[in-house]
C-alpha cells in the first residue's frame, strides 16, 4: 500500500459516501445516472468475486464488501424506493449502456492475462469500469444545473483512478517487474474520459459559479 493508492481508495470511498448522503438524506437522485450505477454494480460483482476464494487483508475485504453493498443499495434506491425514484430523470438518462457491456465482455475474452473464469471476469470488470462513467457524463451535459453533490461525486470518482495511475507509476519504479498493461491502459482510458469534466469542474470552482458542462 502506498499513499497514492490509499488516496485513490479514500477518494473512491468518499465519492460513494457523497452519493449515499445525497440519496439517503435528501431522498433525491436528480442528475444521477442509474445506468452508470448499474454498470458499477456489475463492475464490482465481476471484480470482487475473489472475496469468496481468497483473503488479502482486512482492509481489502472490508472495502470490497462496502463497494458491493453500496453499489447495489444505490441501484435499489433509484429503482424501487418510491420517493427517490421519482427524482430520477429516466427520459434524460438514455445512454444505451447495454452496448457497453457486450464489447467489454468480448474484448475480455480476447485480451486477458490468463484464460480462466475469474480472470476473464476480472478483465471484463476493468474494461467496463473504464467506460461506466459515460452515461453519467452524458446526463450531466443534458442536466442544465448540476447540483454540487453530484458534481463532487463525479469529481472524486474520477480522481480515484487518477491517484491509481500515480500508484502504478510508483509501484513500477519501486517493485521488480511490476507491470499490468491491461489495468494501466484501462485506467488511462477511464481517466481520460473525465478530462473535460475536470476542466469545467475546476473552472466552476475557481469562478465560484455553478458547474455546467457544454451541451
Amino acid at each position: 500500500m502506498n499513499i497514492f493508492r490509499l488516496a485513490g481508495d479514500m477518494s473512491h470511498l468518499f465519492s460513494i459516501l457523497l452519493l449515499l448522503l445525497k440519496i439517503h438524506t435528501i431522498k433525491s437522485c436528480a442528475g444521477v445516472s442509474l445506468k452508470t450505477q448499474e454498470l458499477y454494480a456489475l463492475v464490482f460483482a465481476t471484480r470482487y468475486l475473489d472475496i469468496f476464494t481468497g483473503y488479502i487483508s482486512l482492509y481489502n475485504t472490508l472495502m470490497k464488501m462496502f463497494f458491493l453493498w453500496s453499489s447495489f443499495t444505490i441501484v435499489w434506491y433509484m429503482r424501487y424506493h418510491n420517493v427517490v425514484r421519482r427524482s430520477y430523470d429516466k427520459d434524460q438518462d438514455t445512454f444505451r449502456h447495454y452496448f457497453l457491456i457486450l464489447p467489454c465482455f468480448i474484448l475480455a475474452l480476447l485480451v486477458h492475462e490468463k484464460f480462466t473464469f475469474l480472470e476473464v471476469l476480472w478483465t471484463f470488470s476493468l474494461y467496463l469500469e473504464a467506460v461506466a462513467i459515460l452515461p453519467q457524463l452524458v446526463l450531466l451535459q443534458r442536466t442544465r444545473n448540476v447540483d454540487n453533490l453530484t458534481g463532487h461525486y463525479v469529481f472524486f470518482l474520477g480522481a480515484y483512478r487518477s491517484f491509481y495511475i500515480l500508484n502504478w507509476i510508483y509501484r513500477y519504479f519501486t517493485e521488480q517487474n511490476y507491470y499490468k498493461w491491461i489495468t494501466w491502459i484501462s485506467g488511462l482510458v477511464q481517466t481520460a474520459l473525465y478530462a473535460d469534466f475536470f476542466y469545467y469542474y475546476v473552472k466552476s470552482w475557481r469562478n465560484s459559479e455553478r458547474l455546467q458542462l457544454p451541451a
Binding site: 481508495d9 473512491h12 475473489d50 481468497g54 488479502i56
Partner: peptide
C-alpha cells in the same frame, strides 16, 4: 509471481 500480490488492488 505471487498471485496474492497480483490482485492486491481494489
Amino acid at each position: 509471481k505471487n498471485s496474492k500480490r497480483n490482485k492486491d488492488e481494489l
